[in-house]
Design a protein around this nucleic acid. Structure first.
Lengths: 149, 149
DNA sequence: TCTAACTGTAACTAATCTAGTTACATATCT
DNA sequence: AGATATGTAACTAGATTAGTTACAGTTAGA
């Protein structure tokens, strides 16, 4: 498995947080993330829907955070992407011969729901502001050393 | 996203736990899970590698748990599947123009590692025995009522 | 020792998902 | 009007998953 949507999403909002008040175009963000502007716009559409981002169309338009980066957690970002369940549990009809197969699904559903909730809770402990804060720290440290790790 | 491997894997070990001492063929398990025996054998191969299951080849062979179901947690099962990172973080070369892009990757790696650890920890709170115990409970409840939910 | 019942694994297909891309209608500023 | 944005549909390429067939190797038991 491996899905880079969450990483791209956080990076995208990170750019908005970094820039601040000004509107940023999807083209600029795409440059930072190194992908196509349409990919960025698709992700931004999720954020508009969940109220994390405000977008302005037309010349000089672009997007910016709808609230301070301190008040946006990584859980907010993850949930805004609306990716659905992390683990799938195949449906077996009631007519299925094996009683285990007929019975185990709701139990697994519950367990997976709890596991995914733990993940979201963990993501909720970090704010976008903290992530950007760390980026700034490392950027300046790197600049002073004049070298990469 | 959606991956049913974990559900199939737990179901598979559940059958082994349910049967107990006797060896169970991949064909039988496949019948319960409603899939192909090869799919089951592929998953069983992961469990053999991590020591959760013992397999015997040849006539009358099959697989069984290598230790009691009480001592197998859902985290053990998840980790045995060896699915790699849940979230990918694209690599941007040091030469990449945007400093955010160059710097954010290790930070996201850390955050995602913690989030995934929380998920594993949550899975670790359930044992295979508990899952099978609940299956048995619901099976008998269902039998008594003579109807489905 | 032969046979039937197993596993291990390679190879292929079909379905699904993600990312990337082009294209174009629509909106907005100057 | 013209330049600059977004929104979104449509297509392609690549990766991944599940399902399937096929077959070599292993083992128990008649």
């Amino acid at each position: 498995m491996a899905n880079s949507r969450l990483a791209i999403a956080i990076h995208t909002l990170g750019v908005l947080a970094f820039i601040g008040e000004k509107s940023v175009s999807s083209k600029m963000i795409a440059g930072s993330v190194k992908t196509n502007p349409v990919v960025i716009r698709r992700i931004l559409a999720n954020f508009v829907k969940s109220g994390l981002v405000e977008v302005q169309m037309g010349a000089g338009g672009g997007s910016r955070l709808a609230r301070p980066a301190e008040e946006i957690s990584l859980a907010d970002i993850y949930l805004a992407l609306d990716e659905g369940d992390m683990f799938d549990v195949p449906i077996l009809e009631d007519s299925h011969q094996c009683p285990i197969g007929r019975t185990v699904r709701p139990i697994l559903k519950e367990v997976f729901f709890e596991a995914e909730s733990s993940l979201v809770k963990s993501l909720g402990q970090f704010s976008l502001a903290e992530v950007i804060g760390q980026v700034k720290e490392r950027m300046s440290a790197r600049y002073c050393e004049g070298t990469e790790d």
